[in-house]
Amino acid sequence: MWVKETLAIAGKELRTEWRSRVALASLGLFVACSIALVALSTARIPLNGAGGKEIGSQIAAALIWIQVCFASAMGLGRAFVVESERGTMTALRLHARATAVWAGKFIGNTLLLLGVCVITVPTTCGVLGVTVKHPGALIAVVVLAAIGMGAVFTTTGALVAQTSARGGLLAALSFPILLPAFVSGVDGTLRAIGWRLSASAAFLDTSGGILVQLLSYAVLAIAASLLLFDAIWND
């Protein structure tokens, strides 16, 4: 029953998004613009020279997650704002349990966030000339970080939707909370790229701990959100 409600809300979320493609289009444009800025601003850095790989991987790891954070702050806050603008919040309150609403929106948000990552990660790596040594590990890092971040953005998005500030506040409320995921995400990306690791080292041997960090962040974020969402939603 709960699963059904969740899937119904997630499905509705994705269908409305697919029909208008507002979030997708704006996120795509945002990512495209920021890639162009990255390419322009790093043009003078000698990425092909001695030590260029080293610099390139550090910049790539940092920029990927900065872009993901800002793109999410723009795109993911919409879920609940749209609901309150259309006046459909009351109907949703009557028909679904709070946790199901949260879970449905969370699925929608996380898929959108993964969409952003699918564009950002390869293009940023490409622009900076980075070759990824452990693609599987990179995918694991990205997926786990996206789940944790999606959970946080869903909860803070619901908070912000009920204030008079909305837009700017979402970034201010979420970024400090995202910091642990951000730090581990950058670290994990660096290691997946193969930064300062010997060529033969297996990813899990040296850096498995980072996956554990990201997983526990995601679990914590989801648990805290499910516990607290009732207070945000039914108020």
Binding site: T155, L159, Q162, T163, S164, A165, L169, A172, L173, P176, L228, A231, I232, D235
Partner: peptide, 22 residues
């Protein structure tokens, strides 16, 4: 951010609930 959140909500009870969460 917490103080900004408080400042941006008019209704006292909603402000109390949301800031308690944050």
């Amino acid at each position: 951010a917490y103080f900004t959140l408080r400042a941006s909500i008019e209704d006292p009870e909603r402000r109390a609930a949301l800031s308690a969460v944050y």
